[in-house]
Computed example of a mutant assay.
Amino acid sequence: MPLTVAVSGINSMENPGSGIGVIRSLLESGSDYHCIGLAYDAMEPGLYLDEFVSHAYLLPYPSSDAQKYLDRLLTICRDATVDALIPVFDSELPHYISSRSRIEEEGLRILLPSRDQYDSVRKSALPELAEQIGVPVPRSIAVTSYEELSTALESLGFPAVVKGVFYEAYPVHSHQEAREYFDKIVAKWGYPVILQQFIRGDDFNLIGCCGKHGRILGLVAIKKLLTTQMGKTWSAVTIANDAILEAGRRFARELEWEGGFELEFRITPEEEIYLLEINPRFPAWIYLATAAGINLPDRYIKHLFEGKEDFPEEYEVGKLLVRYTGERIRSIGDFERIVVHGEKKP
């Protein structure tokens, strides 16, 4: 019997989730998996990519009532006989963390950070965590008003970076531009908004996954070659960088992290390394790690069901990711059925 794995984040858009990459990795692993997509909107493109998502359900938005969210999630898992969950959105993780005992009582398996671990990687807490793992961070200031925004910009100078508490980061060069992005981020993600010192250099990321007690299941480092306006990876290449990999090991060891994660770095022309942020979930470029030989979703499941902890560390350097846009033509009836039934059936 195949293991049924429910995966969120199938919104393959400008700011994509990692769900399609996770599902693709599982389906190409050689193991026997049946994947269920978890979506928040009937227009999420993953719902219409039949080669990856043949069966999917709609969830309430993460901002909804916690009990309503949990009830719907557990109903889906019972209906689809789900064995394991891989949530990949920052904003949904608090629901899973607070309901972990109830989720596991249902026989579902999952890797998740604790609430303290999750809080420790929030952008406002980054300086303290960076000190623990020995990598400096740009100066950062959390703001909740126009007055605090202006004061922070006077302190940091221009250019600066305006960041949301969950997603989105925009370089700004004036008070007016900063205020526009401040309003945009607050409307979408709420307070606080993070103002960060702008560091010139190249962007590098590290993906990883940890099992119980911070046991590292795999790490892969990349250099970003092209990014979107929001700083999301559009093309990248796998690299070997001992300093970045060691920072990932220290992160896992110091926090005894559990689950997927991403560390974002900037390296200056003087080769100084700065930690820009830590994301408590798999990034959208996860399939590049799989293509390079480190299939983290498969290792995640094997750790949960087989207790496996020792995996090869080596991966192929020089693997190139190039993201592209495409179109999928479907009947309006497909959309209507998802809206009416809250489900896409095989």
Rank of each mutant, 00 (worst) to 15 (best):
P2A: 05
L3H: 01
V7E: 02
G9H: 02
N11W: 06
N11Y: 07
S12Y: 02
S18P: 07
G19E: 05
E28W: 05
G30H: 01
S31K: 04
H34Y: 03
C35L: 03
D50M: 00
S54M: 04
S54L: 07
L59Y: 02
D65W: 13
A66M: 15
K68G: 08
R72H: 05
L74V: 10
R78A: 00
D79Y: 12
V82S: 04
H95W: 11
I97R: 04
S98E: 13
S99L: 11
R109C: 06
L111K: 00
D119V: 07
A125T: 07
P127A: 13
E131C: 14
G134C: 04
P138C: 13
I141M: 07
I141G: 13
A142L: 08
V143W: 02
V143E: 04
S150Q: 09
S150Y: 11
E154T: 07
S155D: 13
G157H: 07
P159E: 13
P159N: 09
K163D: 12
G164R: 04
G164V: 13
V165I: 15
Y167T: 14
P171M: 15
V172T: 12
H173K: 09
Y181C: 10
G190S: 15
Y191T: 09
Y191P: 00
V193E: 08
I199D: 09
I199T: 11
D202V: 06
I207E: 00
I207W: 00
C209D: 01
C210N: 03
T227I: 14
Q229W: 10
Q229F: 12
K232E: 14
W234L: 12
S235E: 09
I239P: 03
I244W: 06
R249D: 02
R250W: 02
F261H: 02
L263C: 09
L263Y: 05
T268Q: 12
T268H: 11
E271R: 15
Y274M: 11
Y274P: 15
R281N: 05
L288I: 06
P297S: 01
E306P: 02
E309C: 01
D310W: 11
Y315V: 01
G318D: 07
K319H: 11
L321E: 00
T325A: 14
R330A: 12
F335K: 03
P346Y: 04
